[in-house]
Design a protein around this nucleic acid. Structure first.
Length: 930
RNA sequence: GGGCCUGUAGCUCAGUCCGGUUAGAGCGCACGCCUGAUAAGCGUGAGGUCGAUGGUUCAAUUCCAUCCAGGCCCA
């Protein structure tokens, strides 16, 4: 007889091979057909909302691995909050305006751009953004990210554009929005402002000159040694043409300066550390140091401009370096970023007497009307003439050029719009708000606090086409802003209806109400601003445009989650716009993740050739493995990815999958509502396993609450591999296979398997939504069970299923088991046995342990998975394995007595005793009779 | 150059806040077993000067300093 047919062997349609790359898209289609997301919304109506507000990715290019990480993390959060009993609506968004798109459209247009109107260019940009939104949307969905993909928020939606304008005008109304000059990169060929991204650096040979500025103030009080001497500050510059705009000389407050007797009745002030190289350059071998000078004593002293009849003041700035030059820095606030910043501190204007074509304005003495780069040589000549030129040479260094025309660019101050950090205490209020937000990890607070504390005013204007205009008009006569509630309403209505394009299509008279007059001077002519807003403002007001507007959302958000670069980016701009207009942060919590790096911890870049695209991973391993990667990593730090890591995760995935496949296979004939066995009727090992399951659930739920998913992955994997596969399930096989199918002992095991499968499946669902669903669909469903695991709640710990004393006894039993397996292995090496069932073990233990084990004497055989286990009290056992871990424990392994039962494979002396079934044991004979 | 952060076995993570027995886990690897989870399952074992150096201490992976390597953001 073939006794194999009498066993209850596992059977399931749940495939061992996941085939994720093929099956996932099918699953997504099914969910879509079932309208799963809508069902979840309906089912959670009325629950407490949990709002994770999506930071909008930029609608350009395909998603990269970092975007995938970000979206998967968000999805895990949303799903786990949903399954924790919240109504977790997820509205994805896209950032649509901005330079990169306009830049790419420019490239496609080439020369044609010049013949197009601003509105025409804007339409092309809009179409471009739409194209990539569609691409990215399908890529995000492919990752298993669940959300309202049919109604995402787009910063270029008309309603959104209207709110951007509205929020901007609120700053105008409050007086925070101001206009002042600031140096920007300017291409005089294209006659346009350029962003940093539009600059290409090329090596170029430029002038390198040293110029002396005669000190006008007397230093006798500060440095007596200089009494009666003519003192000069010597500066170094590579842009002589900016000297007409010189208004100051900057020193570093912490450097040491000295007065050097340079001969020819001249005293030079130089940074001490640069004296030697400078004097060598000047060809003045013989010099002596007269005095040390504390730069702080020179602050606000005056010098003579080298060729104009005016003064330059001495200022202190930490941007001064000792890398090159003299330690005294020529400062023209209209022509340099740092010059401008230090100028602001000292109240010096951003003087920039250069027009759009790069020519000095007429009032510039000696050089009016000259092209600035051509003026360099004449300025040099002028300096020689006045005797201010100390030294002249050439220097090769990298100089900014325009990306389009390849010509050199200049720094030039132009009027820009700023949101003031201090005028209405935006900085102070923001800093206060930072302390009310929960930053995860906690150092996020230090990071953003430092930035807000030190940042300059926010320059929000850009001289570009693709964006939302700064919707203000100002008096043509006195430049006073004309802004009130009525105008705001008009603009908002116009934008909601026609989009921001309307601002460029209509002239100022059509925008302002009829009869508008300047509140300051009564004039009726107005200028419409045509600069657009920094795109950080666009996304920064998403809390207003999305959270406040959508009925299914709520202001403020519970959580913002982005990469740690967003402390400078979206967290920052969102904070400022919300505090500035609403007086508080738009989020209660901010979670950050690190960046994806390669196996060596280096950033991914095309040049290093270490870029891993999400698509490659999905096609090769499946989105589920990418998700598992996200969950396995501690994302608060940088996250490594490599083939080694992905292979490892595939292995882990397979272990989790196969564990569930085995459990499903043993549940084929189990109906939970009729076959379940009550816990009190279960064997101890079953209750022990349920106890351990509770510990896992507790741990995982805590980790979900703390957003620490890697803990869950490790715990889940460990549980499947160690607690289940290597222990419980291995021991269970005998009971499941050989006991009568409907026996209580088998039903008890199945009850546990059912509980395990059901619990683990729900526990993993936020991380592995595809696999959890696949398991769910292969379970024999209890009546009225929800149709998708994603409609089910996360499991909750059930204290009544815990039994600490029982667990403690079993932990000890398992420690003994560990020693037994060692003894078995040693017997195996000696060829005494092969399979553990070939063995009979005898344990000798001392008193206390004996008493504890005696209780389980009958169970030891099955716990150890051997054919026989005998327990004796402290007896010498010849040739026994002596445990190093448990003192007094000796284990003797011998080949088991009796024949191997053909049915259960246990070696039993009862085999052969029954004439009807001569090849099987008494236990099996009994089972067959049942 | 500045701000914030990271560095524990081949890999992913514990432990470090509140210094103290041979620094843990799983995977991978090696070797073996099984063939009734089978392109599966089980067992045993080998892997770490806790980035480096110096300091504090009776004692440091844990505290401090410096350095090295790497990341994000500025300049």
């Amino acid at each position: 007889m073939d006794y194999k047919q009498t066993l209850n062997l596992p059977t399931t349609g749940f495939p061992m091979k996941a085939n994720l790359a093929r099956r996932e898209p099918e699953q997504l289609k099914q969910w879509e057909d079932l309208r799963l997301y809508e069902s979840i919304r309906t089912a959670s109506a009325g629950r407490t909302p949990f709002i994770l507000h999506d930071g909008p990715p930029y609608a350009n290019g395909h998603i990269h691995i970092g975007t995938a990480l970000n979206k998967i993390l968000k999805d895990i959060i949303v799903r786990s909050k949903q399954m924790s009993g919240f109504d977790a609506v997820y509205v994805p968004g896209w950032d649509c305006h901005g330079l990169p798109i306009e830049h790419n459209v420019d490239k496609e247009l080439g020369e044609k751009k010049k013949s197009l109107t601003r509105s025409q260019v804007r339409k092309l940009c809009r179409a471009y953004a739409e194209r990539f939104i569609d691409i990215q949307r399908s890529e995000f969905k492919r990752l298993g990210v669940m959300g309202d993909w049919t109604h995402p928020y787009l910063t270029m939606n008309y309603e959104y554009e209207a709110i951007i304008a509205r929020e901007c005008m609120k700053f105008g109304l409050s007086g925070d929005l101001t206009r002042s000059k600031k140096p920007i990169h300017w291409c005089f060929t294209c006659q346009t402002a350029l962003a940093e991204a539009e600059i290409e650096y090329q090596d170029e040979s430029t002038d390198s000159i040293f110029v002396k500025f005669a000190l006008a103030d007397d230093l006798t009080a500060e440095v007596p040694a200089l009494t009666g001497k003519q003192v000069y500050l010597v500066i170094w510059t590579t842009t002589p043409w900016t000297l007409p705009a010189n208004l100051a000389v900057a020193l570093h407050p912490d450097f040491e300066y000295v007065a050097v007797d340079a001969g020819r009745d001249e005293v030079y002030v130089l940074a001490r550390d640069l004296v030697e190289p400078c004097m060598a350059t000047f060809g003045r071998a013989a010099y002596s140091i007269l005095a040390r000078i504390d730069p702080r004593r020179l602050e606000r002293k005056r010098c003579r401009h080298p060729f104009y009849d005016r003064e330059s003041i001495i200022v202190l700035g930490k941007h001064v370096t000792l890398d090159a030059g003299t330690g005294c820095v020529h400062t023209a606030p209209g022509h340099g970023r740092e010059d401008h910043d230090v100028g602001l501190e000292y109240g010096i204007e951003a003087y920039s007497p250069v027009d759009d074509r790069g020519r000095f304005t007429p009032e510039v003495e000696f050089f009016g009307g000259q092209f600035v780069l051509d003026a360099n040589s004449q300025i040099r000549a002028k300096l020689s003439e006045t005797g201010a030129l100390v030294q002249a040479g050439k220097l090769a260094h990298s100089y900014p050029h325009c990306w389009r025309c390849k010509q050199p660019v200049i720094f030039r101050a132009t009027p820009q719009w700023f949101i003031s950090m201090d005028k209405t205490e935006l900085r102070r209020k923001s800093l206060e708000e930072i302390d009310r937000v929960q930053w995860i990890p906690a150092w996020g607070r230090e990071r953003i606090y430092g930035m807000i504390e030190n940042r300059p005013d926010w320059c929000v204007s850009r001289q570009r086409a693709w964006g939302v205009p700064i919707t203000v008009c100002y008096c043509a006569q006195c430049e006073t802003l004309l802004l009130n509630e009525e105008i705001i309403d008009r603009v908002v209505r116009m934008f909601s209806e026609h989009g921001a394009d309307v601002w460029f299509e209509r002239d100022v008279a059509q925008i302002l109400p009829p009869g508008a007059r300047c509140p300051q001077c009564g004039h009726d002519g107005f200028i419409k601003e045509t600069d657009i807003l920094d795109v950080w403002f666009d996304s920064g007001v998403s809390h207003a445009a999305v959270l406040e507007v959508r009925k299914d959302l709520r202001w403020p958000a519970d959580l913002y989650l982005e990469g740690s670069d967003q402390h400078r980016g979206w967290f920052h701009s969102s904070l400022l716009t919300a505090v500035g207009t609403r007086g508080r942060a738009p989020y209660d919590g901010v979670l950050t993740h690190g960046f994806v790096v390669d196996a060596e911890g280096r950033k991914m870049s095309k040049s290093l050739g270490n870029v891993i695209a999400p698509k490659e991973v999905i096609d090769r391993y499946g989105a589920e493995i990418l998700r598992l990667w996200v969950s396995a990593s501690d994302y608060r730090e940088d996250i490594r990815i490599s083939d080694t890591i992905l292979t490892q995760l595939s292995d882990a995935y397979r272990r989790i999958r196969n564990t569930h496949r085995f459990m499903l296979g043993n549940l084929y004939d189990f109906a939970p509502e009729t076959d379940a066995v009550a816990a009190e009727q279960m064997p101890e090992i079953d209750r022990f396993t349920l106890h351990r399951l509770q510990l896992l659930v507790e741990k995982a739920r805590r980790a979900y609450d703390l957003y620490e998913y890697h803990t869950i992955f490790h715990a889940l994997h460990n549980f499947c591999a160690v607690d289940l596969s290597a222990l419980y399930l291995d021991i269970l096989k005998d009971r499941l296979y050989t006991s009568p199918a409907k026996s209580r002992e088998r039903r008890s095991a199945q009850t546990v398997l059912y509980t395990l499968t059901d619990t683990l499946c729900r526990l993993m669902a936020p991380i592995l939504p595809f696999t959890a669903e696949e398991i769910w669909q292969h379970m024999v469903a209890a009546p009225n069970r929800v149709p998708s695991v994603h409609l089910a709640p996360l499991p909750t710990p059930q204290p009544e299923r815990m039994d600490a004393q029982l667990a403690e006894r079993w932990e000890q039993l398992l420690a003994v088991r560990g020693e037994v397996t060692k003894a078995l292995e040693s017997a195996r090496v000696q060829k005494l046995i092969g399979h553990a069932l070939d063995a009979a073990v005898t344990l000798s233990v001392d008193g206390e342990l004996y008493d504890r084990l005696a209780r389980y004497a009958e169970d030891l055989r099955s716990i150890f998975i051997v054919s026989a286990a005998e327990l004796v009290k402290d007896q010498p056992l010849e040739g026994a394995f002596e445990s190093a871990e448990i003192k007094g424990l000796k284990i003797r392994v011998q080949p088991a007595d009796g024949e191997k039962c053909h049915r259960c494979w246990v070696h039993e002396t009862s085999v052969g005793q029954n004439p009807e079934h001569p090849t099987i044991c008494a236990r099996c004979t009994q089972a067959l009779a049942a």
